[in-house]
Design a protein around this nucleic acid. Structure first.
Lengths: 217, 217
DNA sequence: AGATCAAGAACGAACGATCGGTAGTCTTCC
DNA sequence: GGAAGACTACCGATCGTTCGTTCTTGATCT
């Protein structure tokens, strides 16, 4: 197929932590699949392109993954695991104030999207291509991440710290804002990751009409 | 191919205005293509599935569109035209106050995403599958829509009505928030279109830290 | 009014290419 | 020497598209 006019996302490097990658060829397949699926979509990328990118024959892929779908499934799971891990980590030790927690959550969320743009895009935008059995794990992880934020916003609203017409709408807005980052961020962007994270965390608090922070903790 | 576990978007009707549709079979092809491309993606939908949905033989499609890519191109153009038309209309006669203008813009934007979810998804998420020649028109239209909002926010920031760390980041956040609506909205959603539009317009003003509106106009 | 006919739109059939995946073999390395 | 992983070769299915033909329809001409 032809080259695309506009890239689907700005990033060009299929960044993947060593901790994400199984050793050897399995890791190479994941990294190559990540780039292909992110740029062309699951259906738009072929096994042969994937094999070429790995530097191996198409048949050799099946010694490591039982099907093309399993490669995508592994990538989605890694992406959602990394996201959940990050928001949990930033939430750790940030106290009980819902304002601090939202701030921490968004920093973790946006940090994930900018650190692993391709992983974030694939995990979110290609999940629908998987059959139920292979997407279940990722869907569960995603639900956990969303629930974390929902609980925080809900509690903040009950405490009167946040004022929103609808909790769910606010959570959706904050999530959408963060998810989009993966499509335009690149490591050499004029705005630093840190800056984007801080600004979007601030925007999230603004969406929630967070009352000025009192003495936290 | 197999049915997907999670739907890519919640909407099930390929809504398309009579004004969008060419008469006869061309219109039927657009409507069927809209649904298929929205649900499975451009690469994931085949000419034969499209023909089946229209109720015609695959070869017959080529009497109306020269290629599969042209069908997607037409859909993308219609979607971006509709969006631009809507935000222009809501901006008409809303005065010069940047707060009113942002409010109107987001109402128009979110109104589009909720009225034509599949059209919005296809126009935004499948654009990358087109070759440069066929995506140019849509890209131009999209740029116009974004520029409209950018100018408003820029002016509001200069006037001191808005306070944002970065104009571009704010525009991206507001756009992302609105675009996401197309993925979860359905006509029978518990929240009405009107409510969602109003709330997200309000969230946009919050992101911009809009100063309380004085006497408008 | 009835025959004629050009044009558009549908058809069945098939094209070459590519799809995801399998079988069987050979190489390499502990 | 045996397991792992790469290879070559190929499977049937499906891909987007093209071919030549038939059918329908509405205007034209006698």
């Amino acid at each position: 197929m032809l080259q695309t006019a506009t890239r689907r996302l700005a990033a060009t490097d299929a960044t993947l932590l060593p901790a994400h990658k199984p050793p050897g060829t399995r890791g190479l397949i994941l990294a190559a699949g990540l780039k292909l699926f992110a740029e062309r979509g699951y259906a738009g990328a072929s096994i042969r392109e994937l094999a070429d990118a790995v530097g191996v024959q198409p048949a050799s892929l099946y010694a490591h993954y039982p099907s093309k779908e399993h490669v995508l499934s592994a990538l989605c799971r890694i992406g959602h695991e990394e996201l959940l891990r990050r928001v949990r980590r930033t939430l750790q030790g940030c106290g009980e104030d819902p304002r601090d927690q939202v701030f921490a959550y968004v920093r973790g969320h946006v940090g994930m999207q900018s650190a692993f743009p391709m992983l974030a895009v694939v995990a979110n935008a290609e999940l629908h291509a998987l059959s139920p059995a292979l997407s279940a794990a990722s869907l569960g992880l995603r639900q956990q991440s969303i629930q974390l934020l929902t609980d925080i916003v809900q509690r903040g609203a009950q405490q009167g710290v946040f004022t929103v017409p609808d909790v769910w709408l606010a959570v959706a807005a904050i999530g959408a804002m963060g998810d989009r980052v993966a499509y335009w961020y690149t490591p050499d962007h004029k705005l630093s990751t840190r800056f984007v994270c801080e600004v979007y965390a601030q925007y999230a608090l603004r969406i929630l009409a967070a009352s000025p922070a009192g003495p936290s903790a």
